[in-house]
């Protein structure tokens, strides 16, 4: 699972530069949580376009992740990029005052979609393309909010597993405290991804790598030394979340239909 880091950096910075230009933008915007993924993405964006072309939005809900906010500020200052802090508490609280719930997943999804809605608004105001920061691990197991943190203009990091993103972060010399802290989606105080998923990223990524990249069957992954229960759970998570990775199906009734047999490239004419 080790990757050729200079080649990856060259490929991804080229991708950011080219796709931003093709989309008709000359700068990018991203939500900066102070976590590993958005930090690495910001570093790549600065390498691709220079600090003046990168805008970060820091969007805390109350003091749910104040450590993350501090890390995000530090990253923005180190990279010398423009950043804005937008507190999403008023709109989230107003909504849940009308429709109360204690369900942290519902609350977390709503927060992710508030941030998405602000990012898209600022994308239009600032004429900046939104960089997605979802990694391959969370895309595969569906650990993200559809139309929330998964929404973006382009995603430079979606083919890198979480542990590979960490390797890349080390290579790009991001702040050490971000490299070593436990990843969190910031859904509730003390929440960690690994606690919620029930597996360490190291183990999760190694299983996903065998299943996906090496095309092994679940039984073969078990034979390679992984617990059957864990392998089965991961396979189930992949299956259950396919809808998050696709455009919704369109009922085909005509002779030519969007998505079925009306097929044009994304980069059409660019």
């Amino acid at each position: 699972m080790k990757i050729n880091l200079p080649l990856v950096v060259k490929t991804l910075t080229g991708f950011i530069r080219e796709e931003t230009r093709k989309a008709g933008f000359d700068r990018v915007i991203l939500g900066l949580s102070g976590g590993l993924d958005s930090t690495v993405c910001a570093y790549l964006a600065v390498r691709a376009l220079g600090p003046k072309k990168v805008l970060a939005l820091i969007m805390p809900y109350r003091d749910l992740d104040s450590e993350g906010v501090n890390h995000a500020r530090k990253v923005a200052r180190l990279l010398k990029i423009r950043f804005r802090e937008i507190d999403i508490s008023p709109q989230v609280d107003a909504y849940f005052a009308a429709f109360p719930t204690d369900n942290p997943v519902l609350r977390g999804n709503k927060m992710a979609r508030e941030r998405m809605s602000i990012l898209y608004d600022f994308s239009a105001r600032e004429k900046a393309l939104i960089l997605g920061t979802s990694n391959k691990t969370e895309l595969l197991i569906g650990y993200g909010t559809i139309h929330g943190d998964m929404a973006c203009g382009i995603n430079p990091m979606g083919d890198l597993y979480k542990t590979q993103v960490r390797e890349l972060g080390r290579h790009l010399k991001i702040p050490k405290e971000i490299l070593v802290k436990k990843p969190t989606a910031g859904l509730w105080p003390g929440q960690t991804d690994e606690g919620e998923i029930g597996l360490s990223y190291e183990e999760l990524d190694r299983i996903l790598y065998l299943l996906v990249d090496r095309r092994q069957k679940p039984d073969e992954v078990v034979a390679a030394g992984f617990e059957r229960k864990k392998v089965r759970r991961i396979v189930e998570m992949i299956k259950r979340s396919e809808f998050k990775r696709k455009m919704p199906p369109i009922a085909k009734i005509s002779s030519r239909t969007v998505g079925h047999d009306f097929l044009y490239p994304y980069d059409w004419g660019k």
Binding site: M1, K2, I3, N4, L7, V8, T11
Partner: peptide, 10 residues
């Protein structure tokens, strides 16, 4: 394929 760290290309 980028998982051969010693090879210069894909």
């Amino acid at each position: 394929g980028v998982d051969e760290p010693r090879s210069p290309g894909f």
